[in-house]
Design a protein around this nucleic acid. Structure first.
Length: 258
DNA sequence: AAGCTAGACAACCGCCTATTG
DNA sequence: TCAATAGGCGGTTGTCTAGCT
């Protein structure tokens, strides 16, 4: 949160303001929203609908920039938003999705009803990344940290129902889309990626990556839906979808290439 | 009681992409 | 085809608050 709301005034200077904004439009209020502003925005959006954010403040009578209005609505005022405690199953889903998608917060939030990208991003940065680190797992790559020398029992610490080590005996540290380009500590885990199901998961990720890059959002969507229940099922679903939609040839699935 | 510190998270910023004229 | 604009996203900042010393 910021200072008590401030309005950027044309005559303001760094000497007579408690804090000089890094940048700001004249006559635009910044900082925390108050209940009156929330009500104005909520009333306006419920009457007129969302969109045209840039002109909305003027039309609604708010001294805010359009981006700020949009953010406030999307992250806090939308009726569908579920706030507060993140349940263990939600946490587990966030971890699974992050392992696949990396820091694609909006994409992750889209699969978790009632949660916003900002909320998930904050939760990740303040809770989950630290939890993974404490368990010797790199939160960016989901691979074991190098030089992490805690005892194995520490992996079990944490107390939640996290499914950090996926069921079905899959590779616990598959490549994380978008975050694995640097290579890094592959040596520590290379030997682990040997069994059949691990190959399946690798194929799953590779294929999904290709799918995303080529805009097959419908396939991606069904794939992500299936993540809610079962990774292995997800693999088969993706595979079937890829075959049916003739992605084969369009994008060669990883399981076809071996 | 006062000061300090770390955690939590709302809000802002800059960049990128899509859309429109 | 290009430029302007709007919308969306991820990274980061900075304040508040609770817990500790």
């Amino acid at each position: 949160m910021r200072n008590p709301s401030e309005i950027i005034d044309a005559g303001a200077s760094s000497s007579n303001m408690t804090k000089t904004p890094r940048r700001g439009k004249i006559g635009v209020k910044r900082g925390p929203w108050n209940p009156e502003e929330d009500k104005i925005l909520t009333d306006y959006v419920s009457k007129e609908g969302v969109g045209k954010w840039n002109s909305l403040p003027k039309r609604a009578g708010l001294l805010r920039c359009g981006k700020s209005c949009r953010l406030r609505w999307m992250n806090y005022l939308r009726p569908s938003i579920k706030r507060g405690f993140i349940a263990p199953d939600e946490e587990d889903l966030i971890l699974r999705l992050h392992r696949l998608l990396g820091n694609r917060w909006a994409l992750i939030a889209g699969r978790i009803p009632g949660r916003t990208d900002n909320e998930i991003k904050n939760y990740w940065n303040t809770h989950l990344s630290k939890k993974l680190i404490s368990q010797g797992i790199d939160p960016r790559t989901h691979k074991p940290l190098e030089n992490w020398n805690s005892s194995p029992s520490d992996y079990a610490a944490g107390g939640s129902s996290l499914t950090l080590l996926p069921s079905h005996g899959q590779n616990p540290n598959p490549t994380s889309i978008g975050n694995n380009d640097s290579g890094g500590n592959d040596g520590a885990t290379a030997s682990a990626v040997t069994d059949h199901s691990n190959l399946h998961l690798q194929a799953q990720h590779e294929s999904w990556k290709n799918t995303l890059e080529n805009g097959k959002e419908d396939v991606l969507s069904s794939f992500l839906d299936s993540l809610m229940t079962d990774d292995e099922y997800a693999l088969w679903q993706l595979r079937d979808a890829a075959e049916e939609e003739a992605i084969v040839g369009y994008v060669q699935p990883a399981w076809k290439s071996t």
